[in-house]
Computed example of a mutant assay.
Amino acid sequence: MTHLDSTDGLARRAVLAGGLGLAAVAAPSLTQAKEDKPQMDKTMYGLIGQMKAAPGKRDELVAILAESTEGMPGCLSYIVAKDAADADALWITEVWTDKDSHAASLKLPAVQVAIAKARPIIAGFGHRFETAPVGGVGLG
Rank of each mutant, 00 (worst) to 15 (best):
1 M>T: 13
1 M>R: 04
5 D>C: 10
9 G>S: 13
11 A>S: 06
16 L>V: 14
17 A>L: 12
19 G>R: 03
30 L>Y: 10
36 D>Y: 03
38 P>R: 05
42 K>I: 07
47 L>N: 05
48 I>S: 11
49 G>M: 07
53 A>S: 14
53 A>T: 03
55 P>Q: 06
55 P>V: 09
57 K>R: 15
57 K>M: 15
58 R>G: 02
60 E>C: 09
61 L>N: 01
63 A>P: 02
66 A>Y: 05
66 A>S: 14
66 A>P: 05
66 A>R: 08
67 E>L: 09
68 S>Q: 03
69 T>H: 04
71 G>K: 07
73 P>A: 03
78 Y>R: 00
80 V>C: 10
82 K>E: 10
83 D>M: 10
85 A>L: 11
85 A>C: 07
88 D>N: 15
91 W>G: 00
99 K>G: 01
99 K>N: 04
101 S>R: 06
102 H>Q: 12
103 A>S: 13
105 S>I: 09
105 S>H: 06
107 K>F: 10
109 P>A: 04
110 A>I: 11
113 V>N: 04
118 A>W: 02
119 R>I: 14
121 I>G: 00
124 G>C: 10
125 F>S: 15
125 F>I: 12
126 G>P: 02
131 T>K: 01
134 V>R: 14
135 G>Q: 05
136 G>N: 07
137 V>N: 15
